Amino acid sequence: MIDSGFVGELLGTMIMVAIGIGNGAGLGLKKTYSRTSNNWLLVCFAWGLAISMGVYTASAAGSAGHLNPAVTIAFAICGLFPWHSVLPYLAGQFIGAFLGAIIVIIIYYKNFQITNADEGNNVSIFGSEPSIKSPIHDFIAEAGATFAFVLVLTHLGDFTVGLKPFIVGMLIIAIGLGLGNITFAMNPARDFAPRLAYTILPVPHKGNADWKYAWVPFFGPIVGAILGAGLSTLV
């Protein structure tokens, strides 16, 4: 039997170094979000806090706070979540993401009216767009970031209690700064449903929704989450 100390130190050091060095790569290499956006730290913090608040809300309403089809599917495949709850969770996640996008469209409608696609009224507000468009590489980046996220997530136990939702949010911030500089979706519902809302709703002066790319942030996180949850189950 493999020594548990060895396994724990291996996985922990792997996550630590991947996030730490990944941050260095994001700061040092060309065409990363950290280099091309002065607001990347703000984006990561906003999504981290958004997920923390979402987990708290979901938990209070009676769910396990997944908020992410990749997590739900991976947990079910690895025996960490009952299959009979998968479809209700997926439905809630995709519909909830669509409704969230509607809220943004309503609140910012006047701003959409005065902003053209080349000025920022584009799909990156609603879905993810890679720093360098290379679908296979971007798929690997999505899978890798989600793998790290779910590997850590599975070791938090019930991540809906106490301050754990904030820990989940901090995890998202760390992944975004360290491994999310290429593409940062890690959630099929978070990308697909808002992208759909941007496509079919009357958003003024909107740009192209880029559906040719949409398969990457849909399937990449699912594969990464299955690998992360699978590895956690094995060890």
Rank of each mutant, 00 (worst) to 15 (best):
G162H: 11
A143K: 00
I140T: 03
V152G: 07
N122L: 14
D138F: 04
S124W: 07
G157C: 15
P130M: 01
P135K: 12
G162R: 15
V161E: 07
T160E: 12
F139A: 03
S124K: 12
A145R: 10
P135L: 10
P130G: 06
F126P: 01
K133P: 04
T146N: 05
E129Y: 11
P135T: 11
F149L: 09
S128W: 02
T146C: 06
G144Y: 11
T154N: 08
I136D: 12
I132C: 10
I125K: 12
G127R: 03
A148G: 13
H137F: 10
E142S: 04
I136G: 10
A148M: 15
P135H: 04
T146F: 03
F147N: 01
V123T: 00
A145W: 15
N122G: 08
L156H: 09
G120D: 13
G127F: 00
A145C: 11
S131F: 05
S134G: 06
S128G: 03
F149H: 01
E119P: 08
I125L: 12
L156I: 11
T146G: 05
F147R: 13
E142G: 01
G127L: 06
T160L: 06
L153I: 01
A145F: 15
K133W: 10
E129I: 13
A148S: 10
T146L: 02
F159G: 03
A141K: 02
P135W: 05
G162P: 15
P135M: 12
K133M: 09
V152P: 06
I140C: 01
E119C: 02
G157P: 13
I132K: 12
H137S: 08
E119F: 03
E142T: 02
V123P: 04
I140S: 00
L156V: 13
A143E: 00
T146H: 01
A143G: 03
F126N: 05
V150R: 12
D158V: 14
G157M: 14
S124L: 03
T154C: 13
D138K: 05
T160W: 03
T160P: 11
E129P: 04
E119I: 04
P130I: 04
E129C: 04
S128T: 11
D138E: 10
K133N: 08
V161M: 10
V150A: 13
E142C: 03
F126R: 00
S134H: 11
A148N: 13
A148Y: 14
G127C: 14
N121W: 02
L153P: 01
V161Y: 10
V123S: 05
E142L: 09
A143T: 02
A148T: 11
I136K: 11
V150K: 11
I140F: 08
A143F: 01
V161Q: 09
V150Q: 15
S128C: 05
E119K: 06
A148D: 13
V150S: 08
V150F: 15
V123K: 02
A143N: 06
I125G: 02
V152N: 06
